[in-house]
Nucleic acid binder design. Structure first.
Lengths: 153, 153
DNA sequence: CCCAAATAGGACTAAACTAGTCCTGAATCG
DNA sequence: CGATTCAGGACTAGTTTAGTCCTATTTGGG
């Protein structure tokens, strides 16, 4: 568990398909047929990504989307933030969060340290890394159904 | 988003309540009243934790649970694994995962690097850290409803 | 100037997952 | 033997996520 949502997964596929098309716009329909993701879903994703200013949109005939920044300047954290909201593994000290177990809580700020480590990891990986990764694995699967993998140990 | 489930959250509270009771067993009912978590839920959690061998159980009258290991030898990763299954942010290269978007997938192994970083972060934090944390925050809330916090920037 | 192409925004439905409860059985102690 | 407590699983309700669709707005071209 502890995984990104399917939508975020698709989102990276959609963004990856724009990486090598910085000087032209792609319509949602084009992206859908390129990636194989359902058109309404692509459309929804692009709207969210546009709101987060990861892509810019052009309306009207011959309109479409393109990346606003270079792929290396878009981090995985940006994508997750855009599609799932800010990362927070669990939250205690936020301004006005209330909790029924407060007085029995022996848990400290360790979760926040973990949270920061996760954010750092997401910050460290760019869209450029995500698109056209090294793909050293013999056969690379991806997309639709994230599948839980055995613990590596 | 990208958060642990409520159950895992409760799980850490339950385990934290056992930290300073290594030489006695606590029944599920006792733990429930100590932590304020609903008894059936505590029971469910303890069963899962027992299956993962993070706690040992004693049946029968005066039975109960205790930690199997020292708190510093139980990592956050152990807890998450026990209650949510293995961590995997998304999966491509697993043995027999199939994916409809395979041929259109430009995504590399970057997610796996992220995944490993997350696992490392979880491995680095022990139950001892989670219980009785430094609690430097002015007021510490925890439990029931993990609340998304603004990005710190 | 009008029509077609395309995004913007939001409402809505269906499916999946999570949280939580409950019941029955088995083990242990007194 | 009977009370206590865990083991295991079935089940329900609620929430979240995924996905679709409709309407309005903008833009380009004939």
């Amino acid at each position: 568990m502890l995984r990104i949502s399917k939508l975020t997964d698709y989102g990276t596929v959609v963004l990856a398909s724009l990486v090598d098309r910085t000087d032209e716009v792609s319509s949602a329909a084009e992206i859908a047929s390129r990636t194989g993701v359902a058109p309404p879903t692509v459309s929804k994703l692009l709207k969210l990504l546009a709101k987060a200013e990861l892509v810019s949109s052009t309306r009207g005939a011959n309109g479409g989307y393109r990346l606003t920044r270079a792929p290396e300047d878009i981090s995985a954290a940006d994508i997750v933030d855009a599609l799932e909201g800010p990362v927070s593994i669990t939250e205690c000290s936020a301004s006005d969060s209330h909790c029924a177990y407060e007085e029995n809580c022996d848990t400290g700020d360790a979760w926040q340290r973990i949270n920061q480590a996760i954010r750092d990891a997401l910050d460290d990986v760019s869209l450029k890394d995500l698109a056209k990764g090294t793909c050293t694995a013999p056969k690379m699967h991806f997309g639709g159904t994230p599948i839980t993998v055995e613990r590596t140990n």
